[in-house]
Design a protein around this nucleic acid. Sequence first.
DNA 1: TTGCAATTTGTTATGATTACAAATTTACAA
DNA 2: TTGTAAATTTGTAATCATAACAAATTGCAA
Lengths: 144, 144
Amino acid sequence: MRVEDYILKFGIKPSVQRVAVMKYLMTHKTHPTVEEIYEALHEEISTLSKTTIYNTLKLFVENGAAAQLNIEDKCVHFDGDISAHAHFLCQHCGMIYDIFPSKMPIINELSSLEFGSHNIQNVQLNLTGICEKCMKKQKVKESK
Amino acid sequence: MRVEDYILKFGIKPSVQRVAVMKYLMTHKTHPTVEEIYEALHEEISTLSKTTIYNTLKLFVENGAAAQLNIEDKCVHFDGDISAHAHFLCQHCGMIYDIFPSKMPIINELSSLEFGSHNIQNVQLNLTGICEKCMKKQKVKESK
DNA sequence: TTGCAATTTGTTATGATTACAAATTTACAA
DNA sequence: TTGTAAATTTGTAATCATAACAAATTGCAA
């Protein structure tokens, strides 16, 4: 499916900028920040403004076409994958890993959570720690 | 137990400022921000600096004496309750509700989560939506 | 083509957080 | 008790993500 049609499904009118941002999210599963998206897209679309990135991502999130991750306090990350999954942030290298239900079955239960009569619109399961790669690096350092 | 002894258990040396911040966290279950803590404590400790609040809270979080909530993108909230529980942020009024395992049994499983060989140090379950109170207000408005 | 609404852009403002060095307090040895 | 180094606190200035805003541009219908 074309990216234009994909965002249309969420009620978002396509534009050159919006399609470019969504295409970036879909091809880069790195949970990029506004800064990273801007730096990448600025090359192809030289007139692209950072404000447009902010506006576009806000539009995506409000319409359910993308997810906003508040896993880090420095800045917000975005995710084009809106399927149910959790995230793991490595405090050492900053990488954000996806955790899918196949690896963590509890994720399947998150969509049906209830909390009194409150209206739940979003559920995020955020893990932080040190990733496997960084732990190995630390051990090498310690043994020297 | 005195607050001095409580923070000592986490390896934190007590000071007037640190005790005041921890006491505030323990008596105000509102998940306050740095700003809120500063405004409240500034009255009793007139020389108190906002930098000290930042330093103190960072120290608490690093030593496990308090929890940092990244549930909102505007700013960070803090919680003196370090027992396993989740949070619900109302997007309308900004209030953050505690959700304890008795109301949401799945929370009991969060402490034993595993993700490959990665070293998990922290797990946060964050819900957002519209709280019961705000939903009622909306209905009143709509019916007018 | 014309005109209006939606979108994009660039600049400026805001506000949370951090960096940093000076001032103060604390701990402790002499 | 006194002196001194370390720890802590403080105030200011800098940083940086994000929002506000108005002007410029684009899309589209009449």
